[in-house]
Computed example of a mutant assay.
Amino acid sequence: MRALYIDDDRILLELVSMSFGTDLESVVRVTSDANEAVDLIRDEKYDVILLDAVMPGICAADLIDQINATSNCPPPIIYITGLALEHQQVSLMQTGAVGVITKPFDPFDLLRHVRQLIDAPVASDHASDAGQAA
């Protein structure tokens, strides 16, 4: 699996790098710069994008729009965020994400959780339905 992780927290960038480093078949690129992220997505193919929902100077929804504009078939997006309230997560799912992983997360379980969210697109449909019902 090839992943791109975008977050402004350097410690979390390192933690996610180490989490993916435990699997020989997975590679993660990390960046704290939204413009660099868009360039990387345009220049390289990723299986998933991991995105912090709250970063200074950028709106996650706007970044997702930029990501979608750079590719005919953009990779699935999973938020890694401290936004833990249900209505916050529903709002994130409405931006087109396939899932939300709440900080703090278990670094030893991260890769499994990411794979599970990618393999279960039905989960995002249920979250969208819940958001419309709310």
Score class of each variant (00 low, 15 high):
47 D>G: 15
28 V>Q: 01
36 E>N: 12
8 D>K: 02
57 G>F: 01
11 I>R: 13
47 D>H: 12
40 L>H: 03
61 A>G: 07
32 S>K: 11
51 L>K: 04
51 L>D: 04
30 V>M: 09
27 V>E: 14
38 V>G: 03
52 D>P: 01
36 E>H: 12
8 D>S: 10
8 D>L: 01
21 G>N: 09
30 V>I: 15
25 E>F: 14
47 D>I: 06
28 V>D: 00
37 A>M: 08
52 D>W: 01
23 D>F: 15
10 R>G: 05
31 T>E: 04
7 D>N: 05
47 D>N: 14
53 A>N: 00
3 A>D: 00
54 V>R: 11
35 N>T: 14
17 S>F: 07
62 D>Y: 06
12 L>P: 04
31 T>Y: 03
40 L>C: 04
55 M>R: 06
17 S>G: 15
30 V>C: 15
53 A>T: 00
57 G>I: 02
14 E>N: 13
47 D>Q: 09
47 D>C: 05
31 T>F: 03
44 E>K: 06
46 Y>M: 11
51 L>M: 15
6 I>M: 06
48 V>S: 06
43 D>Q: 12
51 L>S: 05
4 L>K: 04
32 S>G: 15
41 I>G: 00
34 A>K: 05
54 V>M: 12
13 L>V: 08
17 S>N: 14
5 Y>C: 05
9 D>M: 06
16 V>H: 08
60 A>I: 05
42 R>F: 10
27 V>G: 01
56 P>K: 10
45 K>C: 13
8 D>T: 04
59 C>Y: 09
41 I>Y: 01
50 L>R: 01
31 T>P: 03
11 I>H: 12
5 Y>S: 02
56 P>A: 11
43 D>A: 12
47 D>S: 11
18 M>H: 10
22 T>K: 15
35 N>Y: 10
18 M>E: 14
40 L>P: 01
23 D>N: 15
26 S>Y: 06
37 A>H: 06
61 A>V: 10
35 N>Q: 14
55 M>Y: 07
40 L>D: 02
52 D>V: 02
32 S>R: 13
31 T>D: 05
27 V>M: 10
58 I>M: 14
21 G>T: 09
